[in-house]
Each structure stands twice: as C-alpha cells, then as structure tokens.
Design a protein around this nucleic acid. Structure first.
Lengths: 259, 259
DNA sequence: TTTTATATGATTGACTCCAATCATATAAAA
DNA sequence: TTTTATATGATTGGAGTCAATCATATAAAA
C-alpha cells in the first residue's frame, strides 16, 4: 500500500528526533513509537543513516555525533582514512603539558580521539567548543578539559557566537587545531559565518595555529574567508605537495605537515 | 584460572575508557581490543554497568551520559519512576518563551527530555551547564540552546568552576531548575564543592528558582549548603507533605509542587 | 480512468547475541 | 603447603536481529 511521500518524510524526521533525544533506541522500541512494522523501521533507518545524523548498530541506532564510530571503522594499516592519519600527525604536535584549543568538526574530533592514546600527558589543558570532542576527552588521563560557552549550533554540535568569542578572551593557547571547509590559493575558508567569525577571533589567541584539512577540501572556496596562508603556523593534510601546487598553494616546508 | 584482582580492575577501567572514547562499542570489538573472551567481556560489562558510567545495549555498550536510555525504561503509566513525574511537573512550569536555566544531574536531564515533548515553544532560550541536557536539547524545535563555559567535571558531565560562574553574570533567567543531593530542615545541600558554589552563584540570577529532588534525598544532609527554603521559589518532588513534615520541612503551599 | 511505481507488512533462513552451565587454572587465604 | 575462592573460556539452547523476497494496496503518473 503506497503511502504519501510526505508522510514518509515526516516519519523519518520524527525518527531522527527520537534517536537524537534518546541517544540510542532499539528497533523494537522504534516500532512501538512509530507504530509501523519492523521492516519499515529498518528501511527508515537505512534511509536516515544515508543522510548522516545516525549510526546503525546491531539492534538499534545511535545519534551520530555522540559516537562517530570512527575508531571502529578506521581500522589500522593502509586502509586507514585520511582523517585518522591527519589526527595522528596533529597529536604528535601536541606538547605534554600546556594549553591547546580543539575546534569543532569531524577531523578535529579524530584528533581528540587520537589524543586519548597519548599516555605521557601531564596536566595538558584542552579547551574546546565542540561537544563531541568534550565527550571524547572527558576523563582522559592527564587532560584538564575546559569547554567554551556559547550558542549551540545544531549541525556542528559546537558552541559559537558572541559568548564563545568573549570567552576566548580569557585564554591564551600554546597551539590551536582548527578545521576548515575549503582551501585554495588565498587561504582557508568556511561556509558558516558563525564558524568563520569565531575562528578569526581565535587566531590572535594562539601561539601556533594548525589547520587540519583533508585533500577533499583542496581547491574548494567557500564564502567566508578565515585565514591566509601567512597567518597560519602549519597545514596538516594528506594532500601531496604537487596537489597543493596544482591548487595554487605554495607553503614553506616548515608550514606543511603531510600526514 | 584465577587472575590477580588488580589486572581485572585495570582491564575494566580500560573498558570504561574505550567506551567513553568511542561512545559505543560492539561486544566483538571489545573482545578484540581487550584480548579476552566474549564471556569475560559480558561479565565486565555487567560489572562496569553496575558502577554507572555505561549502559549496555543489545550487541554492545554505550557511554552513559550520552543516553541515559531513560525514556526506554521509563515506560508510561503507573510504574513510571519519580524522576519522570518530577520532570513533567517541572516542564509544566516552563513558559512558552523567555529564558530558563537547566542544571546538571539526571533529574534535570529528565526535564530536558520532557521539554522536547512540548510543541508550543517559541524561541525559548535554554541555558545549561550540562552536556547531557545539551545533547538532548540540541535541535529541539522552538529552543535556542546556550551552553555555559567552564571546567569539565567528569563525574557529572557538567561545566563548573570560575569560568562557569563568570559566564553566569551575562544572564538573567526567568526560571532556573536545579538538582540537589540532599534536603533537610535547613534546606538543600550538595556533596560537591564546585556544584554547591556554582548553584549559590546562580541563585541571584534567576527570578524563580525551582529545585527538583526525588524523595530518596529526604533527610539526607551533605557537606555543602546550597540554599535555605526561604531562598527557593519551589520544590518539585514526589515526596508527600507528611514525608516532608517528618523530615522537619515545612513549606508554604505555593512553594510545594507534588509530582 | 488506467497504468505504473512504490511503500508496506509478512515470511523465511541465516546469523548474532545472550545467559546459564561447567571444567579448569590459579590467586588468595588458611 | 594445603585449601578455598574465583576469574576465565568453551559450550549450548533459546531468543533476537537482519537482509531478501513476495504479495498487496494505494499514491502518483499517464
């Protein structure tokens, strides 16, 4: 019995809401709540998962940014995705002690994850505006975690806005690790005004500014300029030198860290 | 083959760390990482779950404050636990618009959860220092979510300390919903110095201060005094009047909301 | 209206997960 | 040392989950 497309979409939106609220829901429970069969729920889960936002598990589904599930999929070795390699390269840059900043975004979340592997940290202060990073790093040994305040941006699960920028004033970072959405000859850019504004405000607060972008961002220019190549201390990427040059990016050797 | 207790404890600590890092891990994956049998992993999961911090699901386990899994267990009807009833009572106090504060703690997390059921909200600003509440409320319709900055307290998944108190200064709340660990004739108390200090700093910022405590906290006195009965606007609890009187607590009718 | 496309629920067989039970090896206690 | 307690792994039966297939009803297209 075919059913109006609109109803299907509404139900799937509701499903996303439910999972978001509960963090995890077993399939049987979803059936009960949406009053549809198990088969339909599974189909809905497949559809919603494809659009991001949730992750299926055996028996149910999780809200996504709680657990990108990265470390499970990102097995070791050759097949390891670019983000994990970038993350390890970034973590190698982090001192045993001091104060660092971690931005929002999946790449930096991978950095947070990798940071929990380090066992030599002694009272490293980590400041972040990412709920995902906070969740991952909470309780990590040797880490004193601080979270910036601000307005919650749903898409990024991050804190932004005037409050966040104001809170930055209280800090001075030995190093900051930032994500970006595009990089071209002019520098780093982002499509979100709030994020770009926040990152620009952060630049002067950090002794070293390391941007972490995988090769897929090469040559992509998004509306809001964040930083020129001159302003940043290092680019950590899996892109090769020749790829960078092809995109019109020339960096001194000490600013280019290949993952 | 019996094994030193110390090793067992270390392994279980490691398990907690792993789950914390990944948010969710399937049993098979845990076996691989800890290099023990499925049976042992299940036993470890039972043990770790008993101490809080994780929630088992079919096929694996979740980090706890991501999803207290409450709404699944807290079925509707008569068996519904006190916290859910308190939460609904609290939500009924929340205006359609304005600015409110939500504290950390499982009771208030239930309030956040219940708040997502309200569909009549129009730009209600919700400010919180609880990551769990933020996770639940992120993306809720009609809610503009703000998170206070501060030092991350692992046990509560909440933000506290000087930064948080400072951030409070920027706000003025129509209502604040707070949790507590004990209530007796003198008032509300808490065992954590940071939490008590934070709550005391919050009191003058809110027009209405509603404490939400279930009956199990009755008569319990913990080291740090937070508020006297005179200072709060309402107590939302499942305890009956006679139970309160037996504990030496006398409240005017307009300050006592029974869930 | 007629035709086509598709959303749904039921069924099925393979697979996975789980709790309980049991034998065993070894730490801890006597 | 001897005894006791217990942490572990293997096994097993039962229950739960999943993807695939199929029939059907109905929305959308012609």
């Amino acid at each position: 019995m075919r059913v109006p497309q609109e109803l299907v979409d509404l139900r799937r939106e509701e499903l996303r809401r439910l999972i978001r609220r509960d963090g995890f829901l077993p399939v049987a429970e979803i059936c009960r709540r949406l009053a549809v069969s198990e088969a339909t729920v599974r189909r809905d889960l497949v559809a919603v998962e494809a659009n991001g936002h949730i992750t299926r598990t055996y028996g149910g589904a999780l809200a996504d940014y709680n657990s990108s599930f990265a470390s499970v999929t990102e097995r070791s070795g050759r097949a390891r995705p670019a983000k994990a390699r970038i993350a390890e390269c970034a973590v190698a840059q982090i001192p045993r002690t001091g104060t660092i900043f971690l931005d929002a975004g999946t790449t930096i979340e991978a950095v947070a994850r990798a940071l929990t592997h380090r066992r030599d940290l002694t009272r490293l202060a980590v400041v972040t505006n990412s709920l995902a990073a906070a969740t991952v790093l909470g309780g990590a040994t040797g880490v004193e975690l601080h979270v910036l305040g601000g307005m919650f941006l749903n898409r990024q699960a991050a804190l932004m806005g005037a409050q966040a920028i104001k809170a930055l004033g209280d800090w001075s970072f030995d190093a900051a690790f930032l994500a970006g959405e595009g990089m071209d000859a002019a520098g780093i850019s982002n499509s979100h005004e709030h994020i770009a504004g926040f990152q620009r405000a952060l630049l002067p607060q950090a002794q070293r500014v390391c941007f972490c972008l995988d090769a897929s961002k090469l040559g992509r220019a998004t509306p809001h300029r964040v930083a020129t190549w001159r302003q940043l201390s290092a680019l950590i990427t899996d892109a090769s030198t020749s790829q960078l040059v092809a995109a019109g990016i020339r960096l001194p050797a000490n600013k280019y860290l290949q993952a």
